[in-house]
């Protein structure tokens, strides 16, 4: 036990690279952003009372489970890679990985594979894409932004070859169960999102492994000096992210009962989800809880728009506007603001 805590100490020192925590500003900041978001949701709920009906909440959660899972994946990568967007951690291949994994999963089921082997191979494929990213970033040394951009186009190409840009319908007992209602009359996919969030939050925020991932991302030089295998943790984050993309792919196939082309449209919402989520953290770090909250917020926002019959054409613009507002205000007002 003492060996663990003594090994944790230098890691915590590595975290110092993020700047000393500022509890007061951090708290004000966090509650401020929470209040803003609750206010927006309350406004939506007031105009569209259906928004907060139990059935609708379940639907929003089930819908958010796909982009939320991808958001968790990006959260891991950004945690271990650092927030510098060009040189730090970023995985642009997540959405394309989802597309490829979903296409593979649906094709395997269509080809008559059983649930378990198809699921296993799909998760393995997602993991493989993550491994390719890890290799490119840590062994070859390609900038993550470029490496994952390239794997993104490899995945998208492979998906096209596999599906010829057509929808692959899929059904199986497992998918039926996943798409159905679970305990408390809540969709299974909604439960899946919450359970996944709990597991990952425990992993990232409650274990030495999580602390080391943040340490590596916060200050690689300090982490290296503290004896952490920086490349290993960096690689691990990409591999886990790849695996999570495959999990999201299974959820996506369950949600639409098919693998559909156009997964690349998910890339931008997933980046928004992760970076919007940083406002819920006192140090403006991406956290699992923050990502979950922002996935739900964006989910309710888009859903509220639908209920209010506002054109879906606005959705992208609002998300783009949101991310700019969030980043600009965190720059100017948030904890650790510079200049």
């Amino acid at each position: 036990m003492s060996s663990i805590s003594s090994r944790l100490r230098p890691t915590a020192a590595a975290l110092g690279g993020l700047g000393p925590s500022q509890p007061v500003t951090g708290l004000v900041w966090r509650s401020g952003s929470l209040i803003a978001i609750i206010f927006i949701l309350a406004l939506l709920a007031w105009r569209a009372p259906l928004l907060l009906s139990p059935g609708n909440i379940g639907l929003v959660l089930a819908q958010a489970s796909i982009v939320g899972t991808l958001g968790f994946a990006l959260t891991l990568v950004v945690a271990a890679g650092g927030r510098d967007l060009v040189k730090g951690g970023i995985d642009l291949s997540l959405a394309a990985n989802l597309g490829l994994s979903a296409a593979l999963y649906a094709s395997l089921l269509t080809a008559g594979w059983g649930d378990l082997p198809a699921l296993g191979l799909t998760l393995l494929a997602g993991l493989g894409v993550g491994l390719l990213n890890a290799l490119a970033v840590t062994v070859i040394g390609i900038l993550p932004l470029l490496a994952t951009l390239a794997t993104m186009s490899v995945c998208a190409g492979a998906e096209l070859v596999l599906t010829e840009n057509l929808t692959v319908p899929a059904s199986s007992p497992f998918l039926d169960w996943l798409a159905g209602q679970g305990p408390l009359d809540f969709p299974v996919m909604a439960w899946a999102l919450l359970v996944l969030a709990a597991i990952l939050a425990l992993l990232l925020h409650g274990t030495p492994l999580g602390l080391r991932l943040y340490g590596v991302g916060g200050n690689p030089a300090a982490a290296r000096a503290a004896g952490l295998r920086v490349r290993f943790y960096l690689a691990l984050s990409y591999v886990l992210a790849g695996l999570l993309a495959a999990v999201a792919a299974v959820l996506a196939v369950a949600f639409t009962s098919a693998a559909t082309p156009g997964s690349d449209e998910m890339l931008l919402p997933l980046i928004v989800t992760t970076f919007l989520g940083t406002v819920f953290s006192s140090r403006l770090r991406p956290t699992i809880g923050g990502t979950l909250l922002s996935a739900l917020f964006v989910g309710f926002l888009v859903n509220g728009f639908q209920l209010l019959a506002i054109s879906s054409y606005w959705a992208n613009g609002i998300q783009g506007f949101l991310i700019l507002v969030v980043v600009a205000t965190t720059r100017k007002l948030g904890p650790g603001a510079r200049r």
Binding site: I90, F275, L324, V327, R331
Partner: peptide, 11 residues
């Protein structure tokens, strides 16, 4: 607004 080029152009 000092937004990083990646996020700014993404927006």
């Amino acid at each position: 607004l000092k937004i990083s080029p990646f996020l700014a152009t993404l927006g």
